[in-house]
Amino acid sequence: MRNLKTIAVALVAFVSFTANAQTTKKIDVAKSGIEWTGKKVTGQHNGTIGLQSGALVFKGKVLKGGTFTVDMTSINTTDLSGKGKESLDGHLKADDFFGVDKFKTSTLVFTNISGKGNGLYTVTADLTIKGITKPITFDITVKGNTASTTLKVDRTKYDIKYGSGSFFSDLGDKTINDEFELKVNLAW
């Protein structure tokens, strides 16, 4: 009987420890993806950008943290081909946009997470682009071994002012929206 009590106490302690333990889920970058959309007065452009690494932290099934590194050298326009694609890819990588020669990565680090129920969370994170860190808030949905979110990023907060009507007048139909959108799908 004494052994049974000892085993029961050990089992309860183990279950309590396991329930309170945090687990880090490494993101499978080959199964994950980031799509971007940039809009301008005369239309929009779309593309992809590669995730270099990432991880989500859970306590049980509850999201508790996350950190990601994006490979800025992988900027890829998908709605153009040939010289138009080469030109836009090159311009986005240049200093007046993301300056990837100097800033090869961007990072996102979760700083605050609040649950909304059914796997939906509101996240505040520190987003670093071109060495400039600013807070950003977005919703993320976690289902099984996947997570997805859409972020809207104001590029002017990261000293990316090229073609911005907020900083330059008389741009007319050459004006580029300050915000761009990132659709992120994560798997682990």
Results as ranks from 00 to 15, higher is better:
Arg2Pro: 01
Asn3Trp: 10
Leu4Gly: 05
Leu4Pro: 02
Lys5Ala: 14
Ala8Gln: 03
Ala10Tyr: 00
Ala13Gln: 02
Ala13Phe: 12
Val15Glu: 00
Val15Gln: 00
Ser16Thr: 14
Ser16Leu: 15
Ala19Thr: 04
Ala19Ile: 13
Asn20Arg: 00
Gln22Gly: 06
Ile27Glu: 02
Asp28Leu: 04
Val29His: 02
Lys31Ile: 05
Ser32Glu: 05
Gly33Cys: 00
Ile34Ala: 06
Ile34Thr: 01
Glu35Met: 07
Trp36Tyr: 01
Trp36Gln: 05
Thr37Leu: 10
Thr42Ser: 14
Gly43Lys: 10
His45Tyr: 10
His45Val: 05
Asn46Ser: 12
Gly47Asp: 08
Thr48Asp: 13
Leu51Pro: 07
Leu51His: 06
Ser53Phe: 00
Ala55Lys: 15
Leu56Ile: 12
Val57His: 00
Gly60Lys: 05
Leu63Phe: 11
Leu63Pro: 08
Lys64Asn: 11
Lys64Phe: 06
Phe68Leu: 13
Asp71Phe: 12
Asp71Ser: 10
Asp71Tyr: 13
Asp71Thr: 13
Met72Asp: 07
Met72Thr: 12
Asn76Ser: 15
Asn76Val: 08
Thr77Lys: 05
Thr77Glu: 15
Thr78Ser: 10
Asp79Tyr: 06
Asp79Gly: 05
Gly82Gln: 07
Lys83Gln: 14
Gly84Ser: 13
Gly84Asn: 15
Gly84Cys: 00
Lys85Phe: 09
Lys85Gln: 15
Glu86Leu: 11
Ser87Thr: 15
Gly90Val: 00
Gly90His: 09
His91Cys: 01
Leu92Lys: 08
Ala94Tyr: 04
Asp95Gln: 13
Asp96Asn: 08
Gly99Ala: 15
Gly99Asn: 15
Gly99Thr: 09
Phe103Asp: 04
Phe103Ala: 01
Phe103Lys: 01
Thr105Glu: 11
Thr105Cys: 01
Thr105Tyr: 05
Ser106Gln: 08
Thr107Leu: 11
Leu108Tyr: 07
Leu108Gly: 05
Phe110Pro: 01
Thr111Tyr: 01
Asn112Ser: 15
Asn112Asp: 14
Ser114Asp: 13
Gly115Leu: 11
Gly117Val: 04
Gly117Ala: 03
Asn118Gly: 09
Asn118Gln: 10
Leu120Asn: 14
Tyr121Asp: 07
Tyr121Asn: 01
Thr122Phe: 11
Val123Tyr: 05
Val123Arg: 02
Ala125Cys: 08
Asp126Gly: 05
Asp126Ser: 09
Asp126His: 02
Thr128Gln: 09
Lys130Thr: 12
Gly131Gln: 11
Ile132Glu: 03
Ile132Pro: 03
Thr133Val: 09
Pro135Glu: 13
Pro135Ala: 12
Ile136Ala: 03
Ile136Pro: 01
Gly144Arg: 01
Gly144Asn: 08
Gly144Phe: 04
Thr146Cys: 03
Thr146Gln: 10
Ser148Asn: 12
Thr149Asn: 08
Thr149Phe: 10
Thr150Ile: 14
Lys152Val: 09
Lys152Glu: 15
Lys152Ala: 12
Lys152Met: 12
Thr156Tyr: 09
Tyr158Trp: 08
Tyr158Gly: 07
Ile160Leu: 09
Tyr162Ser: 06
Phe167Gly: 02
Phe167Asn: 04
Phe168Lys: 08
Leu171Lys: 02
Gly172Glu: 07
Asp173Pro: 06
Asp173Arg: 04
Asp173Lys: 05
Asp173Met: 04
Lys174Phe: 10
Lys174Arg: 13
Thr175Lys: 14
Asn177Phe: 11
Glu179Ile: 00
Leu182Thr: 07
Asn185Asp: 14
Leu186Tyr: 10
